[in-house]
Design a protein around this nucleic acid. Structure first.
Lengths: 344, 344
DNA sequence: CGCCTTTTTGCACGCGCGTGCAATCACTTT
DNA sequence: AAAGTGATTGCACGCGCGTGCAAAAAGGCG
């Protein structure tokens, strides 16, 4: 005990206080100390108090590494992001990290922008025994999943804010069909009749996608399928080039009266292209709608009509999955709301 | 050996392959197996090959949790972000996660937006034995640092993209004095003579800040200190309100001819306020400069003249700190470059 | 007050790997 | 070919905590 104390005070900066030290000081066993730090442990109030006090004076905190190793649960979640160009990612990261931490999970942020490294990233995550890997906003590539043998050590594979057909995967997302129905209703109600759909990267599970929903719905309504363009990244600049390149030498009567975009990043690029590339007015000449309601589209420069996903509820749904208490049938049917601004 | 094999095949999904299994298959000791996975280990090429092959067929990967526990180095870095409103954070996160991972570190993303939770976040990070905590873009609050006893288990406290005076802290940032000098030179050279500085949250180490540098420099040059405004968050909307509120009922001759902003988020808000709130033209009536060169300011809507920090080099500098091979004297003197667009 | 039930506490063993050193092997030199 | 040298391999012990159960303590009742 003596030398323990000495050691602790002599090089406080590096000496790791362990549960044993606290136990000694509090006059209990090491196990009791650790129990004091577990919410639902069976321990008497005064013992816990005594332990906590000792822990406090020693500056003790349980070591999560050792705990994870022993218990085989890390309370760590891996967030995989491959598209840092879309500002909506920042919004999602803020929400997810906040909600996850509130419920006891820490977040490992993995950059899978380099497509070939996705499976490597997954394996690395598995090496840290993450409780789950959450793919944010992008359909998880099947080949990546297949090649990532390491995935078998990742307990759960979750796709967030994106529907997924993969059977090894759980998807937490809003109901794209309902969302696009809402947008379509609005577009029709406002009298637009020559829409163009600006889609993002096409994923494998396309038949439930926003683009497909809009096209099908419109076709049912008016008997003809609208035109669409596909951007292979959610990038405003790319959308700019696409819109500009497509319309630059088209006559006025061949232009759409509204561009329905798969998300806000594309919508911003579209607005810029219409205004600055083609000299058109938004919404007078051509209207634009987005999706996500990122902070930027509320700028007076854009004022884009868009659709807001219930990110907090979705994040809470994710937590339920982690806990294993989720009602999986409801997880991909979250409802958001239309946010009407001036662009349409 | 028999039952090992059985176990592995029977519930492959959950059974954790360990170095022992690989050792048995490869006919070597467990320690040799782990050596094969260490870059600089002393092991013969053919033994390693043999081991790797066995590891491959078993799908083995070293367990980083156990490794961290045993070695007391986690190869984990905690990235602390408290301001998700600034899109530049996304750029920094992309860069940091990519560079860190390239050098073998994983990133724990901690949301400290709720100010009171900063020290709690630090403690939690220390519970995972992170090799370092990196505070991104905001001056680390001294009281937080002080109260966070857990910090003593965090080996290194690093402030990224922000200068810091705190002695317990290492700062990796660009040379704000040089940067503001460059901007000031440009402003003067272009003939602006009535500047207003739009500053962000004031930190404790203010005397080296961008605002102070600009004011001092201008005063030296022209004998008078320019006006300034202070926004207490780097938020475009806040900047909009501030600029609009300040100038809305001021006569034309009392307006500045340029607004020098502490970063792009503020600059975007300023541009919006000038154009949409006050009906002024940028840059014809009032020019604007920013800082950071976030992707959004390259939009044709903004085209803001700004200053780009060398984020990649800074991230590499951070890695050097983690490795302990850094030349600390150079770490807060990175030089960026002026990016001239149309706003000034 | 003694017996029984219900907390509360203690403990052996294991989680998978790293460290530092000792033992062994491979290869060179004379 | 024997001795010497450096490269390679094996191993005891420990990292800090969880699990599941047994032992002990604390209440409850007549």
């Amino acid at each position: 005990m003596e030398d323990r104390t000495d050691k602790a005070s002599s090089d406080k900066a590096t000496y790791q206080v362990t549960a044993d030290d606290v136990a000694k000081l509090a006059g209990v066993s090491r196990w009791t100390v650790n129990r004091a730090f577990k919410k639902e442990a069976s321990i008497s109030a005064k013992t816990r108090e005594k332990v906590m006090q000792a822990a406090d004076t020693l500056g003790y905190l349980p070591d999560l590494l050792a705990a994870s190793l022993a218990s085989d649960r890390s309370n760590l979640v891996c967030l995989m992001v491959d598209d840092f160009a879309n500002p909506h990612k920042l919004v999602m990261l803020e929400r997810l990290t906040r909600i996850l931490r509130k419920h006891g999970w820490d977040s490992l942020l993995v950059n899978t922008a380099n497509d070939t490294e996705t499976s490597a990233a997954l394996m690395s995550a598995s090496q840290r025994r993450v409780d789950a890997a959450v793919v944010i906003g992008i359909q998880f590539n099947d080949s990546n999943l297949a090649t990532a043998q390491g995935a078998r050590r990742v307990r759960k594979l979750i796709v967030f804010a994106r529907s997924s057909e993969n059977p090894d995967t759980i998807s937490v997302c809003c109901d794209d069909v309902a969302a696009m129905d809402t947008i379509t209703d609005y577009v029709i109600e406002r009298g637009y009749r020559k829409p163009l759909f600006l889609a993002g990267p096409q994923t494998s599970s396309a038949h439930l996608g926003r683009k497909e929903t809009f096209l099908r719905r419109w076709s049912n309504e008016f008997g003809q399928t609208p035109d669409f363009l596909v951007a292979d990244r959610y990038d405003a600049r790319l959308a700019y080039d696409l819109i500009h390149g497509t319309f630059v030498d088209r006559s006025v009567q061949d232009l759409p009266d509204i561009i329905v975009c798969e998300n806000d990043a594309l919508a911003m690029g579209a607005v810029d292209a219409l205004r600055y590339g083609l000299g058109l007015r938004v919404p007078e000449d051509i209207a634009v709608t987005g999706f996500d309601d990122i902070p930027q589209v509320d700028s007076p420069n854009y004022k884009i009509t868009t659709y807001r996903q219930p990110l907090t509820a979705m994040a809470e749904g994710l937590v339920e999955i982690l806990r294993g208490t989720a009602d999986n049938s409801a997880l991909n049917h979250f409802r958001g709301q239309l946010v009407v601004r001036e662009s349409a």
